[in-house]
Design a protein around this nucleic acid. Structure first.
Lengths: 122, 122
DNA sequence: CCTTAACTCAACTATATGGTTAGGTTTCAA
DNA sequence: TTGAAACCTAACCATATAGTTGAGTTAAGG
């Protein structure tokens, strides 16, 4: 049985629950290191607003920030996501089960169509 | 490129960000259908508090409720979790990459130890 | 040296969240 | 038919969240 850090999961899922923050992470997924102002640029909101989001991401351990001169570089840290996926994985059987059931139903239909000439259409 | 329902992800991640709600889901993972009062029983909080959590889970589509007589049965619906995992999967390379790097490093160490007799211990 | 870019901080606002208590309604069952 | 179980609703409270504006601070660069 896997043990989860409840408080860490709280922060991770909470951080991921905002579209702005997910967009910030998506940006850092495609570009290794991005400055605060570069990250803020695409958004309609003010710079301090974006910085608050970065604080949340940082508290959740999803990004790291390193200052060089007057610019701050942000990088992704996906480790907390791994734990989040680990938690979700427990429920995976519910949809794979559903897919198995669907597959089984299709198989059933296929077999029942083969003998005769395709009578029982829905 | 996979397209995500942003508002749905908001609700899903937000619903998962609370330990009480995750515990409720965990309960429904091991028991197919559970009544509201049964679900509430293990928690120190009041029944209306638990019911608010159930509302959140229901709004996120993570549970369904069916009333029979005076008792309400709750069931898990994992579908929104599948989408959440889909979103997270995009970042999976960051930790598999890290594991690959670790594996590579261990391989490196193993090979460098083989020739001589195990000198460079950390 | 002075200006400007890049960021930080503080104060304020509105709304959301997570909890409470008190008082319903509906249904079952003695 | 009356009482209690099971659930719902409403009103309230404290704190957190997501944004704003305005005023710093620090570091390049002409």
């Amino acid at each position: 049985m896997v043990r989860f850090q409840e408080a860490q999961l709280d922060r991770t899922f909470s951080a991921l629950s905002d579209p702005t923050r997910r967009a910030l992470l998506a940006r850092l997924e495609e570009q290794d290191a991005v400055s605060v102002s570069e990250l803020a640029q695409p958004f309609a909101m003010s710079l301090p607003a974006v910085m608050k989001h970065l604080d949340v991401l940082s508290d959740a351990g999803l990004i790291t920030r390193t200052k060089t001169g007057r610019t701050v570089s942000c990088r992704l840290n996906a480790d907390p996501m791994e734990e989040a996926m680990g938690w979700l994985a427990r429920y995976q059987r519910f949809w794979t089960q559903r897919l198995d059931a669907l597959e089984g139903m299709l198989e059933e239909r296929r077999r029942s169509r083969e003998p005769d000439g395709g009578a029982g259409n829905v």
